[in-house]
Design a binder for these strands. Structure first.
Length: 570
RNA sequence: GGCGCGGUAGCUCAGUUGGUUAGAGCGAUCGACUCAUAAUCGAUAGGUCGGGAGUUCAAGUCUCCCCCACGCCA
């Protein structure tokens, strides 16, 4: 039995994510987790909310709530939506957890002990009215280059010129609009990533099976310009993990917190600790410490391409730098972007379909199937309502749903709601078995390789194989000449439904459950032989005719939704 | 501006280290069937693989230039 540690990129707390975010990490991670569990492997599938940082503080302020309260509420909302999409996390944690506080402080202490932390005194803009330091992008003013009056302190959106906050003419706080700003000196900790560059480089080089997208991004950051730069890991904020050196105070760093990018990936580890606590045991290091049982763990991360630098460089730098035997990622599956009706999905602009909205329209399976079977694996891909409608109607309603419907209803009308007996397999059935054995092997191979779209293609082909068989066998014609043969044919059809339930479960778990409820198979293990799978329902076994598994998306719905989601949210 | 990923049938996408007549699904057209959610099954049509030059016996696949779209620039 293999052991799989699987993490999906942790979503930021300040709002509900859109379908592009979902398909880029959580959904394919869930597909893989469900598949590995179905294969009988041990799986720990973790995700969490990323809760620290200025955007969270500002979102809380906008909502008129204390930031801790705001984060707690948003975490609950995101957890509910995750459940709605049937994301089968073993634990959905929080980067603000006590476990992550302790672990983040531990890592910082270790890095300092290894000589990989340096202290830097730098100048930052302080807003007296807001009573806080302002990150560069929260300072607005007039661009000295083009005169645009809403340029941000890091860059002018109008002329794209890189800026320093002190370049701005008439700078003001983007938080309060106050112009009562001053430049203050403040001390911060920097992680000496540059010292780890060669180690990281060698580590990336050893990952020959990673997607090109992943390694090319990592290599670019390692070698571009002056190479990998040291990064600040602390901030002058209230909301975050207090800077401590392990268990000890960090002199001179009082009142400061770790920067969100530093503590967020550590939550992948802390989340396992949270999971163990929630399970009532302490046995989580066997997933994360190679000296404590994680030697045989295979660790896979899922994320969108924008997250690749953090997962290939920043987080590994933290782990390598600690000089402790933490588990490093084995495979990193990254995704491109999903576009929406010719443009981008955008959280900030409220463009596209958000996770809560999607679930209000249709059950999770519709979204899971379409998004996974069209996921942006090798290039950006396009979501349009027309493509969505065509895809789910054809694949789910017509090919799979209708198959279950025609088989069960035909059986009910001719033989009743029990598996009919009589007849034996002939050439057509043998051909189907051979075909299915090949296709199931291919499907499993693609799932093992995390080839999401190709897996979906194979699964669909397996569904189609059932219709092909039925069309050729034509039990509705056979029954007029040879009732026993028709019984055998439809018995095979009923077994196919039970087989489809098992094979389809990673993609469409709810429909799979309904197929199983209808067929009541004794065995729901992953099939090793099509012949065994297609003879498992005993003759005389009772079943029920399920309601249609999938209703079609109508043209009226499509038009309504296209219009409803043409603008921006809120 | 620099860098990165792409530009393959009407649409969405596959095309391994260059090698026989470039593939899939959808959509379209025609046919078969009538058990089923007017579903299914079969067949057909559709591409000078963004443009140009080059390397090679052979290029969607390598090199160079150009055009277009998208992304990143700590």
């Amino acid at each position: 039995m293999q052991r799989h540690l699987i993490t999906a990129a942790i979503p930021y707390i300040n709002g509900i994510k859109h379908l592009g975010n979902l398909v880029g990490s959580q959904l394919p991670a869930d597909l893989y987790a469900r598949y590995q569990r179905a294969r009988g492997n041990e799986v720990l599938f973790l995700c969490a909310t990323d809760e620290h940082g200025t955007p969270a503080e500002l979102a809380a302020a906008k909502a008129g709530k204390p930031v801790a309260e705001y984060c707690a509420e948003m975490h609950t909302i995101q957890a509910e939506i995750a459940k709605g999409f049937r994301l089968s996390f073993d634990h959905f944690g929080r980067s603000s957890s006590p476990q992550n506080h302790a672990l983040t402080q531990h890592f910082a202490g270790r890095l300092a002990d290894e000589g990989l932390i340096r202290e830097v005194v730098e100048k930052q803009v302080y807003s007296n009215a807001d009573g806080r330091f302002l990150p560069d992008r929260y300072i607005e003013g007039t661009c000295p280059n083009c005169g645009y009056d809403k340029a941000r302190g890091d860059q002018c959106e109008n002329c794209t010129k890189q800026l320093d906050p002190t370049d701005l003419i008439e700078p003001r706080s983007a938080v309060s609009g106050s112009t009562d700003l001053e430049v203050r000196e403040t001390k911060h900790l920097y992680l000496r990533q540059s010292a780890l560059k060669d180690d990281l480089d060698a580590w990336i080089d050893s990952k020959t099976d990673w997607p090109i997208l992943t390694t090319s991004i990592a290599k670019k950051w390692l070698h571009d310009g002056d190479g990998l730069q040291d990064r600040g890991i602390t901030r002058d904020l209230d909301w975050g993990i207090p800077v401590r050196r392990g268990d000890a105070e960090w002199p001179g760093m009082e009142g400061k917190v770790f920067y969100v990018w530093f503590d967020a990936p550590i939550e992948y580890i802390a989340c396992a600790s949270e999971w163990a606590d929630a399970q009532g045991h302490t046995d989580w290091e066997r997933w994360w410490r190679t000296d404590k049982g994680a030697e045989d763990v295979r660790y896979t991360q899922f994320m969108g391409k924008d997250n690749v630098p953090f997962h290939t460089l920043s987080f590994p730098a933290t782990i390598l730098g600690s000089a402790e035997p933490w588990k490093m990622v084995d495979h990193l599956k990254s995704f491109n972007y999903l576009n929406y009706e010719g443009g981008q999905f955008s959280t900030s602009q409220g463009r596209g379909v958000f996770m809560d909205q999607a679930l209000a329209l249709l059950p999770a399976d519709y979204w899971r199937w379409w998004l996974l079977s069209n996921c942006p694996e090798t290039s950006d891909t396009e979501f349009t309502w027309e493509l969505f409608q065509q895809g789910v109607n054809k694949d789910l309603a017509d090919v799979l749903g209708n198959f279950a419907s025609r088989v069960t209803k035909f059986c009910r009308s001719k033989f009743g709601e029990t598996v009919p007996d009589g007849g034996t397999f002939g050439p057509q059935e043998e051909e189907l078995i051979t075909n299915l054995d090949t296709r199931i092997a291919k499907y499993s191979e693609m799932m093992d390789a995390m080839e999401v779209r190709k897996s979906a293609q194979e699964l669909r082909a397996i569904w189609v194989a059932g219709n092909e068989y039925l069309q050729a066998a034509a039990p509705w014609a056979t029954i007029k000449e040879d009732e026993a043969k028709a019984a055998m044919q439809i018995r095979l059809g009923l077994n196919l439904i039970a087989l489809y339930a098992v094979l389809s479960a990673p993609f469409i778990p709810d429909a799979a459950t309904r197929m199983q409820d209808a067929m009541q198979p004794g065995d729901t293990d992953w099939p090793t032989s099509a012949r065994a799978a297609l003879t498992q329902l005993p003759e005389g076994h009772a079943f029920t005719v399920p309601d249609n598994l999938f209703a079609k998306v109508t043209d009226d719905q499509r038009e309504e939704w296209t219009a409803q989601f043409s603008g921006v949210r809120e």
